[in-house]
Design a protein around this nucleic acid. Structure first.
Ligand code: ZN
Ligand code: ZN
Ligand code: ZN
Length: 193
DNA sequence: ACGAACGTCAGT
DNA sequence: ACTGACGTTCGT
């Protein structure tokens, strides 16, 4: 809720402070201390969303909420984990965040990430990233189709000033735009080597 | 491994 | 539609 400092790296990028506005990050003084899961998050086991608001007992709210593990990054309803005894370690600083019982069963104590990627904020004050997209736990590799449909969100590269070539769905680049794209492509080839 | 870039989400 | 900003990808 703090006001933007106007002087940090990200503020200086903002158009409102005269920057190009490409980074699109919040002011360093305004970083969220309690990030929540996206609304699109679903349970790794049952594929459904969180249902904490369908019940009023605090105990049931927990078992029907979605919890994300800081170690394996799986998001799951605690109630969808049918494990005998083991309890997870709940991080009360960050909503819907824990170290799941599965991970704590094996040696996976805190600082070994199953896949390296996907970090969040550790208990100290240092920032990290976290990921919520699944990754098949220990075996398969996720096909990673290079082509299309399974596009994660996120970003590809653009360039520096914007290459306006788009496929057939939306704008249908004008021929002038196409030729600039071709020109840019040749410029790129020339600058190679 | 780090940081810039950017698509996309979420709120208005 | 517009805005802020998150999470992923890519260049280095
Ligand atoms: Zn700032
Ligand atoms: Zn579930
Ligand atoms: Zn886990």
């Amino acid at each position: 809720m703090r006001t933007e400092c106007g002087e940090c790296h990200f503020c200086k990028d903002m158009k409102k402070f005269g920057g190009p506005g490409r980074m699109k990050q919040s002011c360093l003084l305004r970083q969220c201390t309690a990030p929540v899961l996206p609304h699109t998050a679903v349970c790794f086991a049952c594929g459904e969303a969180g249902k904490e608001d369908t019940v009023e007992s605090e105990e049931e709210k927990f078992s029907l909420s979605l919890m994300e593990c800081t170690i394996c990054n799986e998001i799951i309803h605690p109630s969808c984990l049918k494990m005998g005894k083991s309890e997870g370690i709940i991080n009360d600083e960050i909503p819907n965040c824990w170290e799941c019982p599965k991970c704590h069963k094996e040696g996976k104590t805190s600082k070994d990430q199953g896949d390296g990627l996907g970090k969040r904020r550790m208990d100290n004050g240092e920032v990290s990233r976290w990921k919520l997209t699944d990754d098949p736990p220990p075996s398969k590799k996720k096909s990673l189709s290079l082509d299309d449909t399974t596009r994660q969100d996120g970003a590809k590269r653009k360039k520096e000033k914007d290459l306006p070539q788009e496929s057939a769905s939306k704008k249908k680049a004008s021929r002038a735009e196409q030729s600039t794209a071709v020109f840019s492509f040749f410029s790129f080839l020339i600058s190679w080597t």
